[in-house]
Simulated scan of single mutants.
Amino acid sequence: MTSESTLADEVELGNPAVLHMVCGKIAAGKSTLTARLGNAERTVLISEDVWIARLYPDEIHTLADYVRCASRIKTVLTGHIQALLSAGVSVVLDFPFNTTDTRAWGHALFRAAGCEHQLHYLDVSDEICKARLRARNASGEHPFQTSDAQYELITRYFVPPALNEGFDIVVYDETGNVRCPGAHDLQPK
């Protein structure tokens, strides 16, 4: 049996692809979680930060710059992501699904591919996110530096997911543990 027929058999036997999306404020732990999720078999991790840093080096200076470049990347990747999912490959998107508009894009992706999905919501307080952000900035390992003022600006647009949006939501606490696998408690901290 070839690896191609094995993959086809697994997809047909009810082992479908899953689209994993993450929601959480800056430095809530989205990239850490997506790296872990991306280690699963037949799974591809796609990181918005990596794409933006490589395609638009030194071009992201304002929130408007980010929105423009992120929109372009989503436009280019939409068909590719849907093709991966339709082929039985799970996809982990390290993109911030932090607004109803970005979540609508994710919803369109999994519906078009006819696959399962999970929206991973990292419910972490501003205080913890800011402390992590300062540590991340000091390490110099992240492709972008974010000030406290930028954190406040960007966080103003953050909208926690709601049950009526139609997602299978998994809620995590500030330690990275699953607090609520079925999204019964979606009150932000």
Rank of each mutant, 00 (worst) to 15 (best):
residue 20 H to L: 05
residue 20 H to C: 06
residue 20 H to I: 04
residue 21 M to S: 11
residue 21 M to I: 09
residue 22 V to H: 08
residue 22 V to E: 13
residue 22 V to Y: 08
residue 23 C to H: 09
residue 23 C to N: 12
residue 23 C to L: 03
residue 23 C to W: 10
residue 24 G to Q: 05
residue 24 G to N: 02
residue 25 K to W: 01
residue 25 K to Y: 03
residue 26 I to K: 01
residue 26 I to S: 14
residue 26 I to T: 14
residue 27 A to F: 01
residue 27 A to L: 01
residue 27 A to I: 02
residue 29 G to Y: 01
residue 29 G to C: 00
residue 29 G to L: 01
residue 29 G to R: 03
residue 30 K to P: 03
residue 30 K to E: 12
residue 30 K to A: 10
residue 31 S to M: 02
residue 31 S to T: 12
residue 31 S to V: 01
residue 34 T to Y: 08
residue 34 T to F: 09
residue 34 T to K: 03
residue 34 T to I: 06
residue 34 T to S: 15
residue 35 A to D: 15
residue 35 A to I: 04
residue 35 A to F: 06
residue 35 A to V: 00
residue 35 A to N: 14
residue 36 R to D: 15
residue 36 R to F: 09
residue 36 R to M: 09
residue 36 R to G: 10
residue 37 L to E: 12
residue 37 L to P: 05
residue 37 L to A: 11
residue 38 G to P: 01
residue 38 G to L: 03
residue 39 N to Y: 09
residue 39 N to A: 15
residue 39 N to F: 06
residue 40 A to T: 08
residue 40 A to K: 09
residue 40 A to P: 02
residue 40 A to W: 05
residue 40 A to F: 07
residue 41 E to F: 10
residue 41 E to T: 09
residue 42 R to N: 10
residue 43 T to G: 06
residue 43 T to R: 00
residue 43 T to V: 02
residue 43 T to D: 13
residue 43 T to Y: 11
residue 43 T to A: 07
residue 44 V to R: 07
residue 45 L to D: 11
residue 45 L to V: 06
residue 45 L to E: 14
residue 46 I to S: 11
residue 46 I to M: 13
residue 47 S to Q: 13
residue 47 S to W: 06
residue 48 E to L: 14
residue 48 E to C: 09
residue 48 E to G: 10
residue 48 E to H: 05
residue 49 D to N: 06
residue 49 D to R: 01
residue 49 D to M: 02
residue 49 D to Q: 03
residue 50 V to M: 11
residue 50 V to H: 11
residue 50 V to T: 14
residue 51 W to D: 14
residue 51 W to K: 08
residue 51 W to F: 14
residue 53 A to D: 14
residue 53 A to P: 02
residue 53 A to G: 06
residue 54 R to P: 03
residue 54 R to S: 14
residue 54 R to I: 00
residue 55 L to A: 14
residue 56 Y to Q: 06
residue 56 Y to R: 07
residue 56 Y to T: 06
residue 56 Y to G: 08
residue 57 P to I: 04
residue 57 P to D: 14
residue 57 P to H: 06
residue 58 D to V: 00
residue 58 D to G: 07
residue 58 D to R: 04
residue 58 D to A: 13
residue 58 D to I: 03
residue 59 E to W: 05
residue 59 E to R: 10
residue 59 E to C: 10
residue 60 I to R: 04
residue 61 H to T: 04
residue 61 H to S: 05
residue 62 T to H: 02
residue 62 T to L: 00
residue 62 T to A: 00
residue 63 L to R: 09
residue 64 A to P: 00
residue 64 A to M: 03
residue 64 A to Y: 00
residue 64 A to W: 01
residue 65 D to E: 09
residue 65 D to Y: 00
residue 65 D to Q: 03
residue 65 D to K: 00
residue 66 Y to C: 00
residue 66 Y to Q: 07
residue 67 V to Q: 15
residue 67 V to T: 13
residue 67 V to M: 11
residue 67 V to G: 07
residue 68 R to D: 12
residue 68 R to H: 08
residue 68 R to T: 11
residue 69 C to W: 12
residue 70 A to E: 14
residue 70 A to C: 07
residue 70 A to K: 04
residue 71 S to V: 01
residue 71 S to F: 04
residue 72 R to I: 07
residue 72 R to S: 11
residue 73 I to Q: 11
residue 73 I to G: 11
